[in-house]
């Protein structure tokens, strides 16, 4: 197989994989094939996609953000706790909370020169405590009237399509434009592929990195807000169990863990793959509890398959 073909196949492999999965699940249960069902599945995938979308940028620079589930949970707590008091302003407030968490993680990582997985792990502890503090360690229900007036943008329908999908698509377009068409996106790729060369070209690499982590926190918080809107409540453990599927979605979509290669549409496809696998497992009677096992294995396998080993001298 020529190199060019290999590359092309590598680009479209996640889409092919998704189509095969959909066909498999459809063969098992033909009712799976309906526009309505596709819309539901896609809408259900959007919170996962939103969480994974920002981390995609972090993984593209060769880092990782382990704080996203704590950030999303905290955002849900802020939303649920203060929606009655601050109204619509609670939403930017909750998202800002995520941005601050991302900023904290990135400052710890870049200024103190600490590996990102440990910096964001440490920050996630702080964020988790903050979530407990905002919610007073409880799960807080969002009254339906408040939800109707402030959160319909996330849970209603527009033009027959669930609003979650609109939110997800807008996020994908905005992030894709950032990544494909701006100098910021160019530098994200450059840092992931060869950070020293970017540094040596006189670019303030730390600023770009910080921006990536801030975006990651922001998107995770947005995911938390949408999650809270859908569930009608916020809680300090709302987004637990989301970190692994989010990272799996990114890697399965074809974004390389070693950095430099990736895109947000890939993560979109990856999130759909994760969701369809989940549905397929439920159809086949795999217990919800056992699904973590499958995701753990998929994650390791996807990392192993997509890894560019030529870039690794010593693996730690």
């Amino acid at each position: 197989m020529s190199k060019e073909w290999k590359e092309r196949l590598h680009t479209y492999l996640p889409i092919i994989f998704l189509i095969v999965l959909v066909l498999l699940v459809g063969a098992y249960d033909p009712s799976f094939f309906s526009v309505g069902n596709f819309l539901t599945v896609t809408a259900d995938t959007m919170t996962l996609f939103l969480m994974a979308s920002g981390v995609t940028l972090v993984i593209m620079i060769g880092g990782i953000d382990l704080s996203i589930q704590a950030v999303a949970s905290m955002a849900s707590c802020i939303l649920a706790a203060y929606l009655g008091r601050f109204g619509i302003w609670t939403i930017p407030l909750a998202v800002l909370g995520g941005a601050v968490a991302g900023l904290a993680g990135s400052l710890v990582s870049t200024r103190l020169r600490i590996p990102s997985f440990i910096a964001t792990l440490a920050v996630s502890g702080v964020v988790l405590s903050a979530g407990y503090w905002f919610s007073d360690t409880r799960s807080i229900n969002i009254p339906p009237d408040l939800s109707a007036s402030y959160l319909s943008w996330a849970v209603g329908d527009t033009l027959g399509i669930p609003n979650e999908i609109w939110v997800g698509v807008v996020a994908m377009v905005v992030l894709s434009v950032l990544l494909q068409l701006t100098p910021f996106g160019r530098l994200i790729r450059g840092i992931g592929a060869q950070e020293q060369a970017v540094i040596a070209s006189g670019i303030n690499v730390d600023r770009i990195k910080i921006a990536a982590y801030v975006l990651s926190g922001t998107m995770a918080a947005l995911a938390g807000v949408v999650m809270a809107a859908r569930l009608g409540s916020g809680s300090p453990t709302l987004a637990n169990e989301f970190l692994l599927p989010a990272i799996a979605a990114i890697i399965v979509g074809g974004t390389a863990i070693t950095g430099g290669v990736g895109s947000v549409w890939r993560t979109f496809v990856g999130a759909l793959i994760v969701q369809v696998v989940r549905i397929g497992m439920t159809f086949m009677g795999v217990s919800v509890f056992a699904q973590q096992i499958v995701f753990g294995v998929i994650l390791v396998a996807a990392v192993a398959i997509t890894l560019d080993r030529s870039k690794l001298l010593v693996v730690k």
Binding site: P183, A193, Q194, A197, V198, S201, G260
Partner: peptide, 24 residues
């Protein structure tokens, strides 16, 4: 290959790396 260029970048992308603001 370490500090001079980003091997995965295209020729054009490497050439403008130190002067990106000029191409925005």
């Amino acid at each position: 290959k370490v500090e001079g260029l980003v091997a995965q970048f295209s020729v054009a992308e490497n050439m403008t790396l130190a002067a990106l603001p000029k191409f925005v």
